[in-house]
Amino acid sequence: MKRFYDALLDPVLPAPEGLHDGTGAVAGKRFDVYRNNVMQSLTDVMRAGFPAVRKLIGAQNFDLVAGAFIRAQPPTLPIMQRYGDGFDSFLAEVPQLAHLGYLSDVAGLEQALRLSYHAADCVPLDAARLGDLPPEQLGAVRFAVAPAVHLIPSVWPLYDIWRFNTEDGAPKPQPVAQHVLITRADYDPVPHPLSPAQGAWIAALMAGETLEAAQDAAGAVDPACDIATPMALLFAQNAVTGLITKDPA
């Protein structure tokens, strides 16, 4: 089985010995059916998972680089909705794609969309609960964030690039840094653009920091950072599942 296996991913290796076509003739091209099935099915998984990356580099280039990824990092789980995690880091190391600096972030965004789609369901917290807290306790509160929520930091106009390559008639990307927040209010993950300071605020909250610490993190990036907008977004998108008022320690 080892020889059978090795030859599956290596088109240069001959078909293994000991196989025949049913009438005694060597199997030849028949072995290629398995080779093709493996590469084709995994390439299909990659195409379905990374439509924006594919649009950015073209279908032919995508199949080449996806094929290289498949040979370098074959699946280690039979769950295909998870296959392709790590494609973002892989793309960052492909010299021929180095001129597309944002490509890796776009792949990271697409990976996060898929993770979000399959993440656990949970009961959202009503924003009014925040108002129930005594004002002096507000700074010390931490947010429990839904597992479907993801944040992809970027120095590129990541949201605009993703949208431009997935939506007909979307506006051209502008030269600003955008972090992308992914939320899933019910079953459909939705990306939202954030400024770097807003991204720092949400990153701190997702890391379990207090509201006060998150505000400091945002202020360090931009002292005039608008927190009200991402706060409203989190609650409107069912992204907050609980308030933690006690220190976890």
């Binding site: 089985m1 080892k2 059978f4 296996y5 599956l8 398995y34 099935n37 493996v38 099915s41 995994l42 998984v45 074959p74 699946p75 280690t76 789980l77 039979p78 295909m80 296959y83």
Partner: peptide, 15 residues
């Protein structure tokens, strides 16, 4: 079969 070592080939292979 479809798994060899830790790797999964996403196809139904013969024995």
């Amino acid at each position: 079969w479809s798994t060899h070592g830790a790797e999964y080939m996403n196809d139904l292979l013969p024995l």
